[in-house]
Simulated assay, not measured.
Amino acid sequence: MIKHIVMWKLKDFAEGKNKLENARIIKESVEGLKDKIKEIKYIEIGINSFNDPQAYDVVLISEFENYSDLESYQNHPEHVKVAEFISKVREARVVVDYEV
């Protein structure tokens, strides 16, 4: 099993919306991938609720059977569409992938 964890720090204002509005769009869009991409075994999105300058704004926790499934997810057109939006509204991104 592969855990794929991503955190984003969002811009205060981007794509005509504030940070919280964009965080909610990300949450809804990413959660919607579960029904569109069969390789996803588990997916969860959290929006930070504690105001700390070191905190990231949104976290993705997901699981895949193997690295091949993770790669299929990352290259899936629906994921690419969501990732394109996120790239427009994010300031920073960190990621970790590891085997369980």
Rank of each mutant, 00 (worst) to 15 (best):
S29R: 07
Q74H: 05
L10G: 10
P53D: 03
R90H: 09
S29W: 00
L60R: 04
K41S: 09
R93G: 04
D12S: 08
N51M: 02
K17Y: 11
Y73H: 06
K36H: 03
E91I: 12
I26G: 00
L10W: 11
I43E: 05
E15S: 11
D12M: 01
D97M: 09
E15G: 02
E78K: 10
K41N: 07
I86R: 12
I47H: 02
H4P: 10
I43S: 02
M1P: 15
F85N: 13
Y73K: 07
Y67I: 13
E91R: 06
Y73N: 06
P77H: 01
Y98G: 11
K88P: 10
S87M: 13
F13V: 06
S62R: 04
F64P: 05
N51G: 05
D69L: 00
S62Q: 03
M7I: 12
G46H: 02
E21G: 03
V30A: 06
K27Y: 07
A92T: 03
E15Y: 10
S62F: 02
Y98E: 14
F64T: 07
N51V: 02
L20H: 11
Q54C: 08
I26L: 03
K34Q: 09
H76F: 07
E31G: 00
I45N: 04
F64N: 09
V82R: 13
E65G: 00
F85C: 12
M1V: 11
D12N: 14
K36W: 00
E15F: 11
N75Q: 15
I25D: 12
E65C: 01
E91W: 01
V30L: 12
E21D: 09
N18L: 12
G32W: 09
I45A: 01
N22D: 04
L33C: 05
Y73I: 12
I2A: 04
P77G: 07
K81H: 13
H79A: 11
E78N: 08
E78D: 11
M1Y: 04
P53M: 01
N75G: 09
A23Q: 07
R93M: 12
E99C: 10
S68M: 03
K27V: 11
S29P: 00
A14M: 03
F50K: 15
E84C: 01
V6K: 05
E91C: 09
M1W: 04
I40M: 01
K19G: 02
Q54S: 13
E84I: 10
A55N: 13
L33I: 08
E65P: 00
K88L: 09
S29E: 08
N66W: 06
I86W: 14
N18M: 14
L60I: 05
N66H: 02
E15A: 14
P77K: 01
D52I: 06
